[in-house]
């Protein structure tokens, strides 16, 4: 019986330890909310889907018919550099240019924050261990963000038509699907953005806009030409280049 009591006490301690997100010594205030909106832009201007066209650095003109990506693992950085990790199981969001572009986060400890970290895609070290990574499957599936023959996620689905500078009348479809390639290669990226300090409290729902610059998909660390390759799916050479480019494509709009 004594053993039983000891175990129960131990269990109670664990419970407390797990639920304690509060800073020691801080005045406990009611938690607040944060709306993170992702604005897809080309060089600072909000994009429009087909028939609006854009030109990339390879002088190729393209229109966008579909633009979706997965954002996950959101962590907020407080002004004292400590971090608040948003519950992982609730931190998977599909950003769809033709649908929802806002990640609504609630129950965030009231505090002053100055930065945000998030993942592009699904972290291979958490997949499928943490429940959120599998519970996101139905939504991702409806959005066409699963490979049809594999068990992983597409992190980015970017499709449209393009024409090259040399043959401007010839419109050809392009398709960029970037995601995990089995255990072989993963294109998950972590992004950290610094913000001006802002408050989250029960009286003050914060709203922040993160811009995603589409032009950088084609041209940032690497330059990609559609004419050279317009169908990048499970591509161990080009998919990592796109993912690296994307890791530079997010910025805060304040």
């Amino acid at each position: 019986m004594r053993k039983y009591v000891a175990l129960l006490v131990g269990f109670a301690t664990l419970l407390t330890a797990c639920n304690n997100n509060d800073e020691p010594g801080s005045i406990v205030q009611d938690p607040g909310s944060l709306n993170l909106t992702f604005e897809n832009v080309v060089i600072g201007t909000s994009i429009s889907m087909n028939p609006t066209s854009y030109t990339n650095s390879s002088n190729e003109t393209y229109t966008i018919s579909e633009l979706k990506y997965i954002i996950s693992n959101i962590t907020l950085i407080k002004s004292d550099n400590t971090e608040y990790i948003y519950p992982v199981e609730d931190s998977y969001f599909l950003i769809n240019e033709d649908g929802s572009k806002t990640a609504s986060l609630s129950d965030i400890p009231a505090d002053t924050y100055k930065g945000i970290k998030f993942g592009f895609g699904v972290d291979p070290t958490k997949y499928p261990i943490e429940s959120g990574t599998l519970n996101f499957i139905p939504l991702a599936e409806e959005a066409g963000m699963l490979w049809s023959w594999s068990a992983g996620y597409k992190f980015l689905k970017f499709e449209g038509n393009y024409s090259s500078a040399t043959d401007p009348t010839n419109e050809t479809p392009f398709r960029y699907h970037v995601g995990s390639h089995g255990a072989n290669l993963d294109n998950y990226k972590e992004i950290t953005l610094t913000l001006n300090e802002f408050q989250i409290s029960s009286e003050n729902t914060a709203s922040k806009t993160i811009q995603f610059d589409i032009a950088k998909i084609f041209d940032a660390i690497h330059t990609l030409s559609l004419e050279e390759k317009d169908d990048i799916q499970v591509d161990p050479v080009n998919a990592p280049k796109i993912a690296e480019n994307i890791s530079t494509a997010f910025s805060i709009s304040e």
Partner: peptide
Amino acid sequence: DGAATFLDTQ
């Protein structure tokens, strides 16, 4: 072909 890297996702 190893398209599933975990039994849970197979």
